[in-house]
Amino acid sequence: MPRLPGGRHSLLACALALCIVQPGSAEVSTDYPGAILVFPKIESDAQRDTIVQVTNNTGVRVFLRCFYVDGRVDRDGGDPSWLVTDFQITLTRSQPTVWVAGEGLPAVPSDRPDDLYPGPVPPVGDGFRGALRCIVVDESERPIGANALTGEATIIDRTTGDSHKYPAISVRGFSANNGDNTLLLDESEYGTCPRVLLLNHFFDDAPDPVVDAPIRTTLTIVPCSMDLENSVPGTATVQFEVFNEFEQRLSTSLPVNCYEDVELSSIDRASQPELSIFNFALQGTLVGLSRMRPVLDARTDTGHGVLAVALEVRGDGLSTAPAHVHFVGGNLQADVIVLSEPF
C-alpha cells in the first residue's frame, strides 16, 4: 500500500514542495505539457463521436500507456460500469496524432512506415461515455516524469454538425519518479490535483444574451485517483459554493463515483429544475460563479481530488460550447493512480 512520508520527513518534504511552488499555481494545467493527460469526457454513440488529439511536445520519442474508462451507469446495479480498456502508443519527436474514438487507429498502418506509426488504438464501444487518461512511460512501461503531452478533444454531433472542443488536463511530472505502477500525485512524483475548481457559468435556463435561447450547462467530473490493478474507481464528495451577481451565496454537494456527467440543475436534486440553486429562476441573475471543493480525508492509499469539464448547451442542443474550468492551488491530500501490472 503506498504511503506518504510521515513525521519530520513530511515536514521537510512539504517545506521543500512549498518552496518550489509558483504563485497561485495548481499543478494541473490546460496550458502546459504534462506527464499525465486526462480527457474527462469522451463520447461515442449514434449521435456523437469524439476526435482525440494527442501531441508529443518534446524532441524525443515518448511511449504512452492509455486507459479508456467507461463511466456509464450499469442499468442493473446502478453503479458505473467501470470498464477499462488500455492500449500503448508511441509518438516520435514533436509528433501529433489524431483518432476518432469510435474508430480508433488500425493495427496496420496504411499510409506510413511502422516507425512513424503511433500504434493501434481500439475503438470504444457503442454508447461509450467516459474518460481517457494517457501516462508517459519508458520503453519497459515504467512511468516517468517527462512532461511531453498536450491534447484536445472535439465532440461532434453527426446530425447537426455542431462541434465543441476542450483541452485535455495535464498533470506535471517530476524527476523523483520511482517508476513503479503506483503514481503519487503528491508534488514528488506528479503535481497535485487542484484544491478548488472554479466554474463561471450561466445559470440554467438563463436566456442567451444574443439569441435569447435558454442555456443549460452540463458538468463532467472525474476523480483524480483510481486503482486499475484492483479495479477500484476513485470517489469524491464535491462541495459547491454558488455565487450570483448580487454576491449571494448558496451551497450544495455532489458525490462522485468513477465518473459523473450531470446538468447543473440536477446537482442539488431539486424536485423541479427551477427550484435548483443553479437555476436562473431561483438566482435571478444571468451568470454565477461556482466554487467546487473536494472533501478530503485521512487516507493515504487514495485521494479525493477531482478534475472537470463543463459544456454549455443553447436551445435544444443545437449549439454547444465548452465552459472551461479554472484551478486554484494544489490539494492537501495526495491522489493515487494505481496502474495494472503488465504481465
Binding site: 490546460t30 447537426t160 455542431d162 462541434s163 465543441h164
Partner: peptide, 13 residues
C-alpha cells in the same frame, strides 16, 4: 449543410 465553430486556447512554452 452547415458550418459550426469551436475555439481553443493555445498552449504555452
Amino acid at each position: 449543410s452547415t458550418t459550426k465553430s469551436a475555439a481553443s486556447n493555445v498552449h504555452f512554452f
